[in-house]
């Protein structure tokens, strides 16, 4: 199992792996917002957490279409499915999701503090947003895997995956952003939305890979 984690990590940092595409896209989205909104510093700092979250969500969607498609094209997926008696397929997918998250999504959480400065956010808000991104973005990888598995046979399934996955990510967006706001605005409590966010991620870690395994089993023709 460690073997597949290391392999996927290597693949995404080698040439053409595209681990950095998400970061650059994230940077582009967040950096354009102040030009559109205007130089109202109060407004920017108020919408900052929401912009960072939306940017990160969209950036998460970028690499998803290759999650299983690359394995399908070179025949690896057949062998992963055939091995499902030894390594449960859902577990294999969970590991693949974790590798995808580590390589393509974790860098987003590390870029978020820098981009928070663009949005005139307070250190407190930057810290809270980074923390909620760290906890919330695995949800994107797990639920995204289910979408990617459904669309694996389609040659250009990227758009379909976005359409399938984005509605499902609304809950994490709501609780992630409200936890980030709560850290700055005093009366609102930070912990309840944060715990719900953590629960959503844990929930998706079970549902997403199981659903993806089911979809992949029917995609091997």
């Amino acid at each position: 199992m460690l073997a597949i984690f290391i392999r996927d990590l290597r693949l995404s940092v080698r040439a053409g792996g595209g681990a950095l595409i998400g970061v650059i896209f994230f940077l582009a989205v967040v950096a354009t917002i102040p030009f559109g909104v205007g130089p109202d510093l109060n407004l920017l700092s108020r919408i900052g957490p929401a912009i960072l979250w939306i940017g990160a969500l969209l950036a998460c969607l970028l690499g998803l279409d290759r999650l299983f498609q690359a394995d399908r094209e070179d025949g690896s997926l057949d062998l992963l499915v055939m091995e499902s008696d030894r390594h449960m397929l859902a577990l294999t997918i969970l590991i693949k999701c974790l590798a995808h998250w580590t390589a393509s999504v974790l860098p987003l959480a590390f870029t978020a503090p820098l981009l928070g400065l663009f949005m005139n956010m307070t250190p407190n808000a930057i810290g809270a947003t980074t923390l909620t991104l760290l906890i919330g973005t695995p949800f994107m990888a797990f639920i995204g895997a289910a979408g990617a598995a459904v669309a694996v046979t389609l040659p250009r399934g990227g758009l379909l995956i976005s359409v399938l996955v984005l509605p499902l990510t609304i809950p994490v967006l709501i609780f992630g952003v409200s936890a980030s706001y709560a850290a700055v605005n005093d009366p609102a409590p930070f912990l309840p939305p944060f715990l719900i966010l953590s629960a959503l991620t844990l929930f998706s870690a079970v549902i997403g890979p199981a659903a993806a395994a089911l979809a992949l089993r029917h995609a091997t023709d």
Binding site: A3, D78, M82, E83
Partner: peptide, 30 residues
């Protein structure tokens, strides 16, 4: 399926990994 090695039209090897890395992965995974 758990008793089979399967060689299809595709090689199930990653173009960007070296031959040894590819084989080491399958050897560990199998």
């Amino acid at each position: 399926a758990s008793a089979c090695h399967y060689l299809g039209h595709n090689h199930a090897m990653k173009a960007t990994l070296t031959v040894v890395e590819n084989l080491a992965f399958w050897s560990d995974f199998f």
